[in-house]
């Protein structure tokens, strides 16, 4: 019996946004009289952080502190239409709609401030701390709160904005497959270090090392959440998960979390990540959205590392100990490949 070390890698890209477009998202932004903003959406937070990412995009666009923005989603009576949270579309589509809405609201806010300061609105800037001042003359300023109060109670203006983002539906050529699927791609390369036991077929993942390019990381903490959790899911898909262990035989599916296997807290591996940011030209502040793509490179990298460790190719997921053992037996034992680095 021996445990064989192996290293494998894979590189991928991933389309951001619903393929072929035709999937609008809307946003509404409005201010209370004291300059606190609400963003109304019908976007869905599945845990990926839709509320917070929309909040940061709105705060940045409005030029106000993050605490002054609250995202209210999703109530169909108050939130405007949105297709939903799937197909890596949330950050890209909703984010862009929020920018449009927040820009309109900001325009009214600056007009109100300009009227109070008796200057041209084009000359005004925000400091992100709750103040509006004349560009190059910080002393000539008014707070967002005062401008909002003036708009509401003196000027009779509504500080609000509407936004929609739509990439029109693209057709697919039946003969050639010519199409405009998406406008932005995220990228990744991931290396897996693992060991394979040639007696039990057990695979222990020891380390993940990765480079992910996601456009601008709108919130680094939430990017880390996605990449760590997503890579865990990739490892799970590679080695554990299946509702049909002998597909296409439809039987023997798990009925609970004891029968449907996933790596538990004792089965995880450290993940060393580098984040690259090449902003997407049409993404909100260049953001792409890492949520879906982060699991993908792990599956092939695990398979390639197993080959590197013991010389067997398992082309059918998940790569269970049973499959490894059968392959090793057919091969006449482990055949470790050249070590890498």
């Amino acid at each position: 019996m021996a445990r064989h070390q192996g290293r494998g890698m894979a590189s991928i890209n991933y389309p951001i946004g619903m393929n072929l477009g035709g999937d609008p998202s809307q946003a509404l932004v409005h201010a209370n009289p004291d300059g606190k903003f609400t963003v109304a959406l019908s976007a869905i937070d599945l845990g990926q952080g839709m509320k917070q990412v929309s909040r940061q995009i709105a705060a940045e666009t409005l030029g106000v502190p993050i605490e002054d923005v609250y995202v209210d989603t999703a109530d169909s009576d108050t939130g405007p239409h949105d297709m939903g949270s799937f197909a890596s579309r949330g950050t890209h589509r909703v984010g862009n709609a929020v920018i449009v809405a927040a820009k309109e609201a900001r325009g009214v806010l600056l007009e109100a401030a300009a009227e109070e300061l008796e200057v041209n609105a084009d000359d005004l800037v925000t400091d992100g701390k709750g103040n509006i001042h004349v560009r190059g003359a910080a002393s000539k300023s008014i707070t967002v709160k005062a401008a909002s109060q003036a708009a509401q109670f003196k000027q009779g203006k509504t500080i609000s904005g509407r936004g929609i983002f739509l990439i029109p539906l693209s057709n697919v050529n039946p003969e050639t497959g010519e199409m405009s699927p998406v406008t932005a791609y995220a990228h990744a390369c991931l290396v897996v270090d693992l060991e394979v036991c040639d007696e039990t077929g057990d695979v222990k993942v020891n380390k993940l090392t990765s480079a992910y390019e996601l456009g601008r990381a709108l919130n680094p903490k939430m990017v880390e959440q996605q990449l760590v959790g997503g890579a865990w899911m990739g490892m799970s898909h590679a080695l554990y998960e299946t509702p049909e262990p002998y597909y296409p035989n439809p039987e023997n599916g798990g009925r609970d979390y004891n029968e449907y296997l996933m790596p538990g807290p004792g089965d995880i591996a450290p993940h060393d990540i580098a984040v690259l940011e090449r902003p997407a030209p049409d993404g909100p502040f260049g953001g792409k959205g890492p949520g879906e793509m982060c699991a993908n490179p792990v599956l092939p990298a695990v398979a390639n590392a197993i080959f590197n460790a013991v010389g067997v190719r398992i082309d059918t997921l998940p790569i269970t100990p049973e499959k490894i053992l059968r392959a090793l037996r057919a091969q006449g034992g482990a055949r470790p490949q050249a070590r890498r680095a």
Binding site: R7, H187, C189, A211, E213, A274, L276
Partner: peptide, 15 residues
Amino acid sequence: NTALIECVQVAAQKV
């Protein structure tokens, strides 16, 4: 807006 090559280079460097 591609960046596959850079991802491979950075991952290689890290390991």
